[in-house]
Design a protein around this nucleic acid. Sequence first.
DNA 1: CGGTATCCCTGTCGATACTG
DNA 2: CAGTATCGACAGGGATACCG
Lengths: 118, 118
Amino acid sequence: MSGMAVGRRAGSYVCGVDAAMDVIGGKWKVLILWALSERPHRFGELRRAVPGVTEKVLAAHLRELEADGIVHRREYEEVPPRVEYSLTPRGVALNEALEPLGAWGKANVLGQAPEPVA
Amino acid sequence: MSGMAVGRRAGSYVCGVDAAMDVIGGKWKVLILWALSERPHRFGELRRAVPGVTEKVLAAHLRELEADGIVHRREYEEVPPRVEYSLTPRGVALNEALEPLGAWGKANVLGQAPEPVA
DNA sequence: CGGTATCCCTGTCGATACTG
DNA sequence: CAGTATCGACAGGGATACCG
């Protein structure tokens, strides 16, 4: 269950939706967004909030989200290293734009068989 | 950068959004939905409407979307084979739920650099 | 704590050829 | 026209180990 695609067509998009898919097209990105929408998280917190993700992939996704202007990375210069990730205004807007999709998924994928369309 | 993932966790979802991502997580699925939202398409029409997709992948995506209750496949028993794909009510609802995301992508990914958050 | 470096597995996707 | 069958390529993602 890996090796999807979508990824980084960098400008050759047909519509806004597939452009957005490029941003949230990682396996754990929406889960990261969801966690950060509640409150800022530290790296270790995120790892626990997104069960199953590895450090490598989590770090890679965070870097991409940061590059896309979705998450903000704040590094505290303290003795025990501490980094906090939070949503940028753009990230907040993305999350809000994702809400109808979440409602659809909740109603049409979760909690029922794939058949009952009505 | 290709090879997304997400794929078929079949029930172990954390929220509605990642459940929905499982349905639209193919490389060309949102483009297929977008084309079908305008009007029903035949197989060959879809191939032209979704530039770059191969027959194999297009057929596979259509089968998955059909299994998920998103598209309806109507086969006409005619001399020149003819099949028409259209959106089910659930597919129409999915498209509507995708609209805010499309607007976000249009405003935040298309038409500008990744920086200008404001 | 917060990562990075390696290696490998996997699935998805792509190209071509062929069938009803 | 509308697919299916094979084959192979590719890149993301997982596991583990290690560093500042």
